[in-house]
Design a protein around this nucleic acid. Structure first.
Length: 984
DNA sequence: ACCGCCGGGTGCC
DNA sequence: ACCGCCGGGTGCC
């Protein structure tokens, strides 16, 4: 067991007293406000207020010499200069003030002498300060030993702490100048005489930007580092790896098979010694057999990971999977499939059929109808380095498909339904039982060690993983993959443990874990655990983080393109997941890495760097391998196509604009623009919609005045306000933390913040909290949460009925599409808009002109999305050439490389959102130059949005150099944006 | 001696 | 603990 520091026990308490999941916004008086905050899912709020969480603003109050007593009763031993942890023991039967002392490993060393403990108890219990200890000398003593205590906390608590100590007859000495006291390396022993040098108020704290910069520099060094060499993937990988992927594979395999000591450990005279904490033990500390693959998006982390799974089972030997060496014919379909249809049809085992299953992916019947087509379908797709390609040529397909009709899709007889693994619980079984056809490789599951690799990913990339399995695992290999998702997922751990790969999502992981003792995922000892988009667990208090941390398996990997989002803090969960001693305990992470880095202590950053260096690999798109760029993406061009409105459209536009401008001018003259933010956004939204199509803005003219009636009405209004604000795309960042929104909530005054941020404001400004943006009254019961994962579109849900009418913009689009089809019939394009209703309108002319199109928006269920993506990415004749795409649909990892043209129908407020969308087709795998056309209505709000985009781009480019804008900057900026947008 | 002093027993919180 | 503290044994020089 890892050691428990004081923080652990504190957290433990607050959680135990918390009924999580209670979500009750009934009115609460301000006195019980905070307890009610704690009662929601914010059990960490209590912690953020204390110094321990808040190391960024913690200062050192001073130090004090005390003694640890009762050594002889406990087994925990320490070295001179070793860090120790103090832990309150309020239930100690002899003294309720007891403070126990643990060594780095969590073994009890002794207690703080009672007189001192009496002084510390209050300080620790009220979280006025964090108290840390180092044993300067006397480690060999048998009864008592000295301990140097340091006190850390917020400036405003300093007096209270000094008072409390004084009451018990103690006085803090200033910390020694020049020593690295508290940063854990050397304690300069000797009497801490009264030296009156100024207290070290830390060096220069680093800003987030500086840290990011330092991090990039750190990774720079890694690029040309030739510590690993390229490695070929096992033959079961049907895709040739690119050089940088082979390099990553080599690195990952070497990480998994390493025998090295973990970072900051040395062998010293039969002991293993931690150089950060000075802790030593006889047992050799385990290194992570894994690490962080932090390559940029699009470099192939997924493929590399699949290669790792198949290439390194044990000691660099490939995963023993069944391989078909001679193919006679197919006898029986997958064992547990309810297959009555695919018999004989499914040479391609991935297409095991389950009639009646509603979640289906589609394949052109042409691909399946005549079995001999199957190998072709493969060959066109992927390069092979397999020696047995001749085998495929000789494959004989003796059986004809039977009963195919029952799996023909009703809506489109051209498609055959095949079960989609991502939904329901079901597996892509590559099982091929043919008596004479399968060469059994070794024993399969009877090995004593674990076999299965668990992959956890966000739901949005689940289908990407499945696609990549399909694409990259050679079809001649029987890799058992189980998608653990959906209500019918197996509760039987042994079903999971006999797979080669189990794929699941963070939500499933967390949900299962929440049901105590009933998580099959937590009963399996995994060969390997992979967290994709690993930064999703950066909040240490989130259920999914806890669930991920308690998975069992020695090889542990984190895949992420953004290892650091906001601060070094983000790294803790990842490092903790990797089970690197002693960082699994947050106290040691804090004391040895996080605080030294954020306070700019000498060597702090260096420490972090050597830690990161030893466990991560990161390449950017611009990185080079042996002098050549790892990625050479085709060119990407952005064109702006101006559109002129018709007379009629212009009239509508002008009248709405004049009215809106008058309203907004009034707000300006009254000086309360931000208080009417929702109304302002409403006006702008309508203008943006008219630019696309005048029909879009019917029904959205609801006023947002606050003369509210019933609470229910108010709530409905707030929800619609928030949808408006979020769909406006203007509030990509929270004005409190100035980062992108996490868990957005909307205030009564229609301003959107991160939930934790605004709750912090509430707590600090009790009882008269004001909105940080407009100083309106802030009440917790008026905060409304964003409906999760739901596509926000203020105009969604209404289907324009009757005859449809075109618009200038649609005309411009259709003109371009038809021209494109004439010049290059095979070209595929994305038609992107922020308004799903607009996409619906566009469907009309597409049908009229006979385009084969598909659609992807946020309201679609996962299975529908997968279908849409497959249909679009397919290179079959007759597949969709156009995809109607809502700007924010899907997550990172969405792969739409079939498209070489993008038509952006309306500009987004935030250019990053556009860029992210473009990246979905302009990424690894794109063969053509990509041309992006942005339609912009002349003399309209859209032109102004372009200006704002440019401003934002400049700002982003200089973000590392300049200081963070203040909240008032953000405010002013918003006002300026409004002015610019409405021509004021 | 309702003291001092001696020396053995003892020992965290 | 090569300490302090406790409490019993003891008692001029």
């Amino acid at each position: 067991m890892a050691g428990r520091g004081p923080g652990d026990s504190a957290r433990g308490c607050s959680q135990d007293n918390t009924c999580r999941g209670e979500r009750n916004y009934s009115c609460s008086s301000s006195s019980d406000l905070y307890s009610s905050l704690g009662l929601k899912d914010f059990d960490f709020l209590g912690d953020t207020s204390v110094a321990e969480e808040d190391t960024d603003s913690a200062i050192l109050y001073g130090t004090l010499r005390g003694s640890i007593v009762g050594l002889r009763y406990y087994t925990g031993i320490v070295n001179n200069n070793e860090m120790v942890a103090l832990q309150r023991e309020p239930n100690n039967p002899y003294d309720k003030n007891a403070v126990r002392v643990n060594n780095v490993n969590g073994d009890q060393v002794g207690h703080i002498k009672k007189e001192l403990a009496a002084a510390l108890a209050g300080i620790m219990d009220n979280k006025l300060a964090v108290v840390e200890g180092i044993v300067p000398y006397g480690a060999k003593n048998s009864f008592t030993m000295p301990v140097e205590l340091s006190f850390w906390g917020r400036e405003e608590n300093k007096e209270a702490v000094l008072d409390q100590l004084k009451r018990h007859g103690f006085k803090l000495a200033p910390s020694l100048k020049g020593s690295e006291y508290g940063f854990g390396s050397r304690w300069i022993s000797g009497r801490a005489g009264p030296s009156y040098s100024a207290p070290v108020h830390a060096a220069v704290p680093l800003t987030t930007e500086q840290l990011k910069g330092e991090f990039d520099k750190l990774f720079e060094d890694l690029k040309e580092d030739d510590k690993t060499c390229e490695m070929e993937a096992a033959e079961a990988i049907g895709t040739l790896l690119l050089p940088h992927q082979k390099l990553a594979l080599g690195w990952m395999v070497s990480r998994e098979n390493t025998n090295d000591l973990p970072p900051f450990w040395e062998e010293r005279s039969n002991f293993y010694y931690n150089t950060l904490t000075n802790y030593a033990e006889k047992k050799r500390p385990k290194n992570v057999l894994g690490g962080i693959l932090a390559d940029d998006m699009g470099l192939g982390k997924t493929l590399t990971t699949i290669a790792l799974i198949l290439t390194n089972f044990r000691d660099g030997k490939p995963l023993p999977v069944e391989k078909i060496t001679s193919d006679k014919f197919y006898e029986e379909p997958a064992a547990n499939s309810t297959n009555s249809v695919g018999r004989g049809l499914c040479k391609d085992s991935s297409n095991v059929m389950e009639p009646g299953v509603s979640n289906v992916k589609k394949f052109r019947t042409t691909a399946l109808k005549y079995p001999s087509c199957l190998p072709k379908r493969d060959k066109a797709k992927k390069p092979r380095h397999l020696g047995n390609s001749d085998l495929e040529e000789s494959e004989e397909w003796l059986l004809q498909p039977t009963e195919t009709t029952s799996c023909v899709n009703q809506e489109d007889p051209g498609f055959v339904s095949v079960p989609l693994p991502s939904s329901g619980c079901l597996k892509r079984q590559r099982k091929r039982k043919g008596t004479a056809s399968v060469q059994s490789v070794e024993k399969k599951y009877s090995d004593d060690g674990p076999r299965a690799t668990l992959i956890v990913c966000p739901l949005s990339v689940l289908s990407n993983w499945i696609d990549q399995f399909e694409q990259h695992i050679h079809r001649d290999f029987d890799v058992k993959i189980y998608v653990y998702y959906g209500s019918d997922r197996s509760k039987d751990p042994s079903v999971l443990s006999e797979q080669d790969i189990v794929l699941t999502t963070y939500n499933i992981l967390a949900t299962d874990y929440g049901i105590r003792g009933d998580s099959p995922l937590h009963k399996v000892k995994w060969l390997r655990i992979v967290l994709d988009e690993g930064h999703t667990i950066r909040n240490p208090n989130a259920q999914q983080t806890k669930a991920a941390l308690s998975l069992e398996g020695h090889r542990r990997w984190v895949l992420t393109g953004t290892p650091i989002q906001n601060s070094v803090k983000d790294l803790w969960s990842l490092i903790s997941f990797l089970k690197l001693k002693p960082f699994t305990d947050r106290e040691w992470w804090h004391r040895t890495i996080q605080r030294p880095v954020t306070m700019g202590a000498p060597g702090g950053l260096g420490r972090l760097q050597s830690l990161i260096r030893s466990i991560t690999l990161r390449r950017s798109k611009a990185s080079q391998v042996k002098g050549t760029p790892i990625l050479h993406l085709p060119e990407r061009k952005v064109l702006i196509q101006y559109v002129t409105l018709t007379e009629e459209e212009r009239q509508i536009y002008q009248s709405v604009k004049n009215e809106g401008k008058a309203t907004i001018s009034r707000f300006f003259s009254e000086g309360n623009v931000l208080a009417h933010y929702a109304d302002v956004l409403g006006v702008l939204l309508r203008l943006r919609q008219i630019c696309c199509h005048p029909h879009l803005c019917i029904n959205t003219s609801a006023s947002f005045s606050n003369d509210n009636r019933t609470p229910e009405e108010l709530h409905v209004r707030l929800v619609s306000k928030m949808k408006l604000v979020l769909s406006s795309g203007s509030d990509e960042e929270c004005a409190v933390c100035l980062e992108s929104l996490t868990l957005p909530v909307i205030t009564h005054c229609a301003h959107v913040f991160c939930k934790p941020c605004i709750f912090e404001v509430l707590r600090n400004e009790q009882p008269n909290a004001k909105c940080p943006l407009c100083r309106n009254e802030l009440q917790v019961e008026h905060l409304v949460e964003c409906p999760l994962e739901e596509e926000v579109d203020s105009s969604s849900g209404k289907k324009p009925d009757g005859e449809w009418i075109s618009s200038s913009k649609i005309n411009a689009l259709m003109h371009a599409l038809i021209e494109l089809r004439r010049d290059n019939p095979a070209a595929k394009c994305l038609v992107v808009s922020q308004f799903t209703t607009f996409l619906s309108l566009i469907e009309n002319p597409l049908k009229e002109s006979g385009f084969a199109f598909t659609r992807l928006d946020g309201s679609m269920a996962q299975k529908k999305r997968v279908e849409a993506i497959r249909c679009f990415q397919s290179n079959q004749a007759g597949s969709a050439t156009i995809m109607l795409l809502s700007l924010k649909a899907g997550g990172v990892g969405l792969n739409l490389t079939a498209a070489s043209r993008v038509f952006l129908m309306d500009p987004a407020w935030n250019p990053a959102a556009e860029d992210q969308c473009f990246d979905r087709c302009h990424r690894l795998g794109q063969k053509h130059n990509v041309v992006i056309t942005k339609f912009i209505v002349k003399d309209s709000v859209e032109e102004n949005i372009l200006k704002i985009q440019n401003k934002k781009r400049e700002l982003a480019a200089g973000a590392f150099a300049t200081k963070k804008p203040s909240a008032s900057d953000v405010k002013q900026n918003k006002i300026n944006e409004i002015k610019a947008l409405i021509d004021l």
